[in-house]
Design a protein around this nucleic acid. Sequence first.
DNA 1: AAATTAACCATACAAATGTATGGTATTATT
DNA 2: AATAATACCATACATTTGTATGGTTAATTT
Lengths: 213, 213
Amino acid sequence: MSKEITETQRRILNFLIEQKTSRGIPPTLAEMAKHFGYKNRATVREHLAALEKKGFIKKNPKLSRHIELTLEDKFFIPRPIIGEVAAGNPLTIYPDAIDTIELPTIAKMPKDSFLLRVKGDSLKDAYIFSGDIVIVNPNLEPKNGQIVVAILDDAAVVKRFYKKKSESTSQMMIELLSENPEYKPIVIEKTYQKFKIVGVVIGIYRSMEKKAG
Amino acid sequence: MSKEITETQRRILNFLIEQKTSRGIPPTLAEMAKHFGYKNRATVREHLAALEKKGFIKKNPKLSRHIELTLEDKFFIPRPIIGEVAAGNPLTIYPDAIDTIELPTIAKMPKDSFLLRVKGDSLKDAYIFSGDIVIVNPNLEPKNGQIVVAILDDAAVVKRFYKKKSESTSQMMIELLSENPEYKPIVIEKTYQKFKIVGVVIGIYRSMEKKAG
DNA sequence: AAATTAACCATACAAATGTATGGTATTATT
DNA sequence: AATAATACCATACATTTGTATGGTTAATTT
């Protein structure tokens, strides 16, 4: 058996990914069969068996809608960003990244917002600490002074956003500031490719319950 | 029928949210019944029906694991803020709410808890800043290491709580610590009268939306 | 030429799932 | 005091779901 995926299997896998990201839950065999025009669920099941054999998915037997993706499924972010960041590995958590965030798999988040759990203390200059949950709206145009989540050189950062005219080149540029004056502003010229705004932080929540001694 | 959610319904809703975020798929009736110790799926179903009636979820009939969270408008639910904690000044709890805030549903808000808005920056050694909303539970016995709201000499403080034996007198005493080591611990002997624990801080919420420049 | 694989189909079955109805006890509301 | 809402239970039922088996056709590999 070849380890390579066939055209049909690719379509099935794509549908799985698309459903999980857009609707939040994986489809049932019947739903997939209907979508592809199959008259039989067993057909879909064979494709899934093949995908599992090749290591692309993992099925939990007997349970409905229990197909797990063995890809970067556990950390996924809304579609538009995938593909623009480092191919295949959107938002990899680098051990020595200045700021790291963990993207939970959010089932259809309200108001098109999603949650990020902050990891590491390097964001504390923005009064955000490890374990905090930030609420991010990806569909807001960031205004000056707002805190944004951005991808910069394959690492995720949470900084205060400023857009202004460069004094030297008169070009528009983006500045990412820290609350802590010891950190120098990060300046992004328009030409810089490895930069993408993920969304605007509209709220922070911190649970205290686990912190008992 | 009240539009407010009951304690049991909130537990169900929380479980739904938690499952959708952590596992990716909503649970089945059987899974929920097992989790809550119900002997019957119908019980869960009734709670879901109530939640749907109140607009918190949307069920797609006949389909498994097909509970959708309709948190578009319910993601933030209005809660009254009943007072302010201002460093140095007495804690004032007003009979009528001074304000309301849209608290995200991810925030755990037990029935007996209340909200206080923090004023002033002097609590920042506990990572709490001016404008933050603290969720306070007055009916919890504070455990060592937890952050509590207390009244001390007619002033409200938010500090980390420790109860231990005095090394000199062998009496039980309470220590209120700051995160910042520059602040010396506040030691309260049992005899001290002007001290009262208001409650345990179980969560913090901070809204970012007004902070745009 | 023979064997294998891929991609479908039909039928069948047990378990899981959502649903429906009727009942009980407790609490809150009128 | 009567009514409604809440929170459970038991039992029953149709549908859905995942699974299993056997068969067909076409393309590919041996």
